[in-house]
Design a binder for these strands. Structure first.
Length: 140
DNA sequence: GCCAACGTTGGC
DNA sequence: GCCAACGTTGGC
C-alpha cells in the first residue's frame, strides 16, 4: 500500500466537507497539474492519504482512503485531467502543523517541505508513521 | 498583501 | 525548441 498527501484550502473544501460525504467519498477534482495528476494515476484502491489544510491552517488534519482509482475529472472540460475519489477514514487526534513538520529534521525531505506548491504528493511509510505518531493517531 | 517558486503559454 | 511573459499557489 502506498501513502499520499492531498492538499486543500479549508475554505474551499475542508475536512468537514470530506467527512460529510461519508463512505461514498468524493472526487478529488480540480487538479490541473500534470505531476499531481500522474500521482493520482499511480494510486490504488485502499491507498491511504493525509488530508492537509493549506493557507489558514497549514496542518495535517485527517486520514483518507482512495475509494476509486483514477478516472476523468467530471468537472474538467478536457479529458486529460483525471482524479481519484477519496473518503474520510479518521480525523487526527491532534492536527500536525507545517511548523512541527519543518521543525523535525527527519522530515526535511518531505515533498510538503521541498515543493510546497504540489497539491497531490507521495509520502513515504516512514513519514506516514512519524506524522501519525505526532498526531497521536492510529496509522493503520 | 507580498513575493518566491513554479508551471504554462505563446511568439519567435 | 527556447525563453519571456504571465498566472497561480501557498507560506510568510
Amino acid at each position: 500500500m502506498a501513502y499520499w498527501l492531498f492538499k486543500s484550502e479549508p475554505e474551499t473544501w475542508g475536512w468537514d466537507d470530506q467527512v460529510a460525504k461519508g463512505d461514498a467519498g468524493e472526487e478529488w477534482d480540480g487538479v490541473r497539474n500534470y505531476q499531481a495528476r500522474n500521482f493520482m494515476r499511480e494510486m490504488a484502491l485502499g491507498d491511504r492519504g493525509f488530508f492537509y489544510h493549506s493557507q489558514s491552517d497549514k496542518a495535517v488534519v485527517g486520514i483518507v482512503e482512495v475509494c476509486a482509482e483514477a478516472h476523468p475529472d467530471s468537472k474538467a472540460d478536457d479529458p486529460r485531467w483525471e482524479c481519484v475519489d477519496i473518503k474520510a477514514v479518521r480525523p487526527f487526534q491532534q492536527p500536525v502543523t507545517l511548523d512541527q513538520i519543518k521543525a523535525d529534521t527527519r522530515l526535511s525531505e518531505m515533498v510538503l517541505v521541498r515543493n510546497s506548491r504540489l497539491s497531490v504528493q507521495p509520502v513515504t511509510e516512514t513519514e506516514w508513521r512519524m506524522i501519525c505518531a505526532m498526531g497521536q493517531t492510529d496509522p493503520d
